[in-house]
């Protein structure tokens, strides 16, 4: 590699600044220096260029790459679907087809009526079934309610009977002494321990 020089002033570099000086007479042209500098570079590019350039045979190979059709690749038919609006059937007449004759109108009407009747019928059946279910539920709920009520009444009766029996037992007492004792009337109350209040000594 040639040594690199830093040049601050292009014209000043070629001479000392004096017109008739030696250096001014034999100026070193920039081109020569450049040529010298570039020589190794040129050779380098040439060498690399020959290597990097693709050969003609390679280019031809690339160009001849085979293009497969959809049939050859075996792609499923679904991938080929086009929207309904876009697809235009060939051989079919353009425009709308009107229904104005009685026969076709009757056919359409029969189809529509049958469909509607079916729908309404199914609706009715469904409604009836729902109604039956509701009715059954209502009956069940009523039965349950009745049962609960009966149970409640029974319990109430039992409680009443119990009370009556207790009353009957009390009647058996001699002179009603025992019952009076239980009830705790003031006059007949047996005297227990007398309650006392005492103050703590200082």
């Amino acid at each position: 590699m040639a040594p690199t020089r830093t040049v601050k002033n292009k014209h000043a570099a070629n001479g000392s600044g004096i017109r008739n000086s030696k250096s001014a007479k034999n100026p070193q042209t920039d081109s020569v220096i450049k040529a010298k500098k570039n020589q190794p570079n040129k050779s380098h590019i040439a060498a690399t260029g020959l290597k990097g350039r693709p050969k003609i045979s390679e280019i031809l190979k690339k160009r001849k790459q085979r293009v497969y059709s959809a049939k050859e690749l075996g792609i499923p038919e679904l991938n080929k679907i086009t929207p309904v609006g876009v697809e235009k059937p060939k051989g079919k007449k353009k425009g709308k087809t009107f229904v104005d004759d009685r026969e076709s109108m009757t056919t359409i009407l029969a189809l529509v009526t049958a469909e509607k009747e079916g729908q309404i019928e199914s609706k009715m059946i469904k409604a009836r079934q729902m109604e039956e279910i509701r009715e059954a539920r209502r009956v069940e709920a009523e039965a349950k309610d009745q049962e609960r009520k009966a149970k409640f009444d029974e319990t109430k009766d039992q409680v009443r009977k119990k009370r009556k029996r207790e009353k009957g037992v009390r009647d058996d007492d001699v002179n009603g002494f025992k019952s009076a004792m239980e009830e705790g009337t003031r006059a007949m109350k047996p005297k227990g321990k007398k309650k006392k209040v005492s103050f703590a000594a200082e």
């Binding site: 087809t97 009107f98 229904v99 104005d100 076709s104 359409i108 529509v112 509607k116």
Partner: peptide, 23 residues
Amino acid sequence: RPLTEPETKVVFDKLANYATDLK
């Protein structure tokens, strides 16, 4: 213009909701 087939179907369908004996 007269109705097309789908249009006729739609009209009859709606009418059949309210009326019977459309024939």
